[in-house]
Nucleic acid binder design. Structure first.
Lengths: 220, 220, 220, 220
DNA sequence: TATGAATGAGCGTTCATTCAT
DNA sequence: CATGAATGAACGCTCATTCAT
């Protein structure tokens, strides 16, 4: 939320993110969110969206040029606000290193298997060839944020001698790759998988353990 | 093609995979493959498919009940034949353990970023809520095969003392999660990423190294 | 049209009959009337109707849910307005009894062999298994009206001693069955038949004579 | 049945009625009967007919030029065989005059409300504008037969002094018009109506009574 | 002859988009 | 700015009919 304002203030080029705070526009976006995430881009119809948003079909076109534009605006907004906000909460760069890794892993998994990010991932992956710009935004405000935070933290821990990392960016990517073991991957495919807190905690712990073994300082 | 016969011979239960060798049916499937993988399920139209397959629209319906059925048959065929064949080639269960890991990682990455598997992943992820059965097949004949092979091999290496693994299934999943670091993940989102052989080799090497650090035998 | 208001005023419950006076809706209904009565329900196509109504195909669906709904609305409207109006004009409950019978018979025949009622009869008979509700409406606002009027009149004449009828409802039904002798029956089958005024008058006269012989007061 | 052979022998012009006694052809006609009478001419599809007849679609076209020709052949056959046979059974030209009228009326009603004649009536009425020839055949071999028989019988009874009829053809038509009172008329519209034997008997009796009152000899 | 795959026109319906109100 | 009727192209699908086997 603070990032939203900060962002629009410091990045004057993307007027698109702040455009109007018009209530009708928000209504439309909420309808679009519900319908797009449920049915995909091609599967969603402007009539459905209008109905769900409780506005007329014409109103859609007063605020957005066409279906593609509405979709882009939605993904943009969801990435910058919803996703970014979720991810900002993750890194807690103080205290015990091993515990932090496990906590961060658990939080990352928990966020990524919740309905909205799963829906966003699905639609963005499937529309990536048609809307590469959106995949870019999704990445920058989604995984990107957390990757940047994480790599900075890793670098710091490395300096403190808690970890031995030469390429913190790649290490961060590996960490998040490991986080996706089992639960996230299967959830995205709607495969049956235990998503309980305990199951998440177990994957998180194994992820932390593994990461420490890869990058833990050599003990003599 | 030879694999096709092998497959149908060893799995006599899945008549669906071999159904007809009717040429027109194959034509339709190839048209469907091109159009579905390019435009997604909803984005593909039966007319396009007929055109691409160079058959009439009616012919589509002589071989498949409806769009969903054609789609299911296509994914089924692609998973069982194309994907499975690709993945069967991976495991090389002899020789040096560290080298095998790197080689397998490189092959896995190479396969997963090639156009067809990327397209399949996109369409299956996006249609998972509507076609959960297909995600299941895709998993079983895609990652599933390689996971099973890999976990068996890991168990074996563990017995030989080359690795120290207590949960080989989870370890295999972690290995493939690590393989997806950077290249695969970005490729699926159509993000700019270096897909050169060298880049793949680097990720593969780092993946092998990391895995060995996690599960390598404790050297005293 | 004036009858329309009368109708909607006296039957405040059937909002369906008066729904919109939207011009386009009327255009659609007139196109539907032309095409349905000419080609039957299954034989009529929505494209034809749109063309005849000089509207786009989409407009059809802005006013009616689907083909069946449009058909039902048309039959409903035709029965309540056109048919009912025609039949309301029949009964002339004053003057000489024998003459009234002949006049009513002639009017009834004349109405029932005119194009619209013949077309309606054909389509309703043929679609009765699929749209029983429409046959019911057609009967209630078609023959039903005239049957009710006629049986009331017969009862009255009976009381006056001009006729000797114990079951006026059945007698009315017999009267209209007799009216259908030759001309109406053949017309509905498109068989060659003399439909001249003279021919109608002759059947009407014979019908009146016959009815009087059946129900005329016993002359001592 | 005897009429069939007699007919085809004495009327060498209508080869169409006898064409083949080929079993396949009969199979096709039985399938066509089931489907046409259930769904109407436009509502029936050649595929349905082939399926119901348990032959291939191609076979339909080996025996009949097209859909219209198959339909015409079916109606022709049904009229000449089924309908005619049913109606031949009616007239019992001996014994008491009044009783004969009531019996004939009851038989006529019973036949006309049975499924096949109702279905035929529906489809022929609705397709009369498109297939006037079929309505003609239906009339000649349906009501026509019984009308001819009845008018001959009426003329005879008239000569015997049991009835006083100057136009026996018209009288016969009136008799059958009266027979259609209530039950037949409503049945054709699928309106709720009591079709029990008792109900039929009552209408038949009233019809006989009425007819006798119209044409009974003047009692002095 | 009997078959059923192939055809492409046409079906009922929905779509994204426009525009007069 | 909000509306929702109007549009016609395109959708998934079925049709009557043909023809190689």
């Amino acid at each position: 939320m603070p990032d939203d304002f900060a962002n629009s203030a410091s990045n004057p080029e993307d007027a698109s993110a702040t455009q109007h705070f018009c209530a009708k526009r928000q209504q439309v976006l909420r309808g679009a969110e519900a319908v797009f995430l449920e049915h995909g881009y091609e599967g969603a119809s402007m009539s459905q969206i209008a109905q769900r948003a409780k506005v007329s079909k014409g109103t859609l076109y007063n605020h957005f040029e066409n279906k593609a534009d509405l979709f882009a605006a939605l993904i943009d907004e969801l990435s910058r606000l919803k996703l970014a906000t979720m991810f900002e909460r993750i890194s807690t760069p103080e205290g015990n290193c091993a515990e932090t890794l496990v906590t961060a892993a658990a939080e990352f998994i928990t966020i990524l298997i919740s309905p909205s990010p799963v829906g966003m991932y699905r639609i963005i992956v499937s529309e990536a060839p048609k809307f590469p710009h959106l995949a870019d935004i999704f990445w920058r405000y989604g995984s990107g944020i957390v990757l940047r935070n994480m790599s900075a933290w890793l670098e710091n821990e490395s300096k403190k001698g808690n970890l031995a990392i030469d390429d913190p960016v790649f290490a961060a990517e590996q960490f998040f790759a490991l986080c996706q073991t089992r639960i996230i991957q299967r959830r995205r495919l709607e495969l049956p998988v235990d998503c309980s807190k305990a199951a998440i905690q177990e994957v998180a712990r194994k992820t932390g353990d593994a990461f420490l073994k890869i990058y833990g300082p050599v003990q003599s």
